[in-house]
Design a protein around this nucleic acid. Structure first.
Lengths: 198, 198
DNA sequence: CCCCTAATGCAAGTTGACTTGCGTTACACG
DNA sequence: CGTGTAACGCAAGTCAACTTGCATTAGGGG
């Protein structure tokens, strides 16, 4: 009976209409709850109630609480960030670092980093790659312009330079928990520009 | 009756004998379980059984699973690390970074970092400070010797330099999840030494 | 417009983290 | 050595994450 049972090779997902509404409502409720009570106090039951959705629907779609929280925060974070253009490499790097610091000081931003560290699902590898690729691209653009102005030693690895710029910030924020004041950000940029050699 | 009810101002803790045995057995069992099944699969019930201790004793002493895991890993990590002395600043920094990379590649080391990011208990602030202070001290010693050899630009902030050395490594390990190969470690050291300026 | 079925609603159950009250053991101190 | 009490053993219970089987609803392709 190849005539009567024609089913699409890929089982058609239903992404529009109700599904989309449920997804939006749940993610919204999740962000609300997290911002109100903190990430530790995130309760699936409360999210379900606020979103007007049954708990089971959340579990079937996201699986775990961590996955839900990460998806919700990522959804809110998917915004394109501006590329600074102050005219000097130092100014651009400082602006980049200030933007980054401002983001991680945001409740949602700080949460995203901590979740990204924790989460190990292969499912979110793509999201992580996308997140960092867009940020690396901004850094590369800043460095390209600087090189054309002769402000950059040729042959500098773009990715490494960007990691060196934000590395101390991430270390302080996540590990040593030291304050991220302006003096620290400036000192980081200057160290990256000139190095510690004589 | 101020005569009969004389109790010490500080309620005497009992740290020796049985308590010490329980603590050692529980921490040992915790590390064992974590190394066998991973940190996510850590079960208090299993730890209690292996340690020959009742669950309640674990909860009363450590409170939560996260606190237990962090304490267990910290207990194993409390070892003094050697200060490299290769004769050159570049060699010392490279050795330091290699040691750090080797540590975080250890199951226990990687776990410690991820837990340190997550944990927010004021109770462990002292342990965190101790951990980083000892590491900063090693870095400072390396830099002091380099300065006396004229290999260091005077006035370089020791703490910032150390953060700049290990920052990219932590960023890759925890956030971007890129590989920590030798070429990356060398490039990090060279960038720190010379900067990105012309 | 109809029909297949993906996605949701619903109810009941499982599991493990964490709590509590009370009796018991064995350090620590005199 | 006794003795007070901190720390442990034990039992029972709470709570929230997560699961499962089945009925119901509503996309979206035909």
């Amino acid at each position: 009976m190849p005539e009567s049972s024609r089913q699409p090779a890929t089982a058609a997902r239903r992404t529009g209409g109700r599904s989309a509404r449920v997804r939006a409502a749940v993610l919204q409720a999740t962000v609300d709850v997290v911002l109100e009570h903190g990430a530790d106090a995130l309760s699936i039951a409360e999210v379900a109630q606020r979103a007007g959705v049954h708990e089971t629907s959340i579990y079937r779609r996201w699986g775990t609480k961590a996955a839900l929280a990460l998806d919700a925060v990522l959804d809110r974070t998917r915004t394109d960030l501006p590329t600074p253009d102050t005219g000097t490499l130092r100014g651009d790097l400082l602006a980049l670092l200030h933007d980054t610091a401002a983001f991680v000081r945001t409740p949602l931003g700080g949460l995203l980093l901590r979740m990204a560290v924790q989460e190990d699902l292969a499912e979110y590898e793509a999201a992580r790659d996308e997140f960092w690729t867009t940020r690396f691209a901004v850094g590369a653009q800043v460095l390209d312009r600087a090189e054309s102005r002769g402000e950059l030693r040729p042959g500098v690895d773009r990715r490494l330079a960007f990691e060196a710029l934000t590395g101390p910030l991430h270390t302080r924020l996540l590990l040593t928990r030291e304050p991220l004041d302006d003096a620290f950000l400036e000192a980081t940029v200057d160290l990256l520009l000139t190095g510690i050699g004589p």
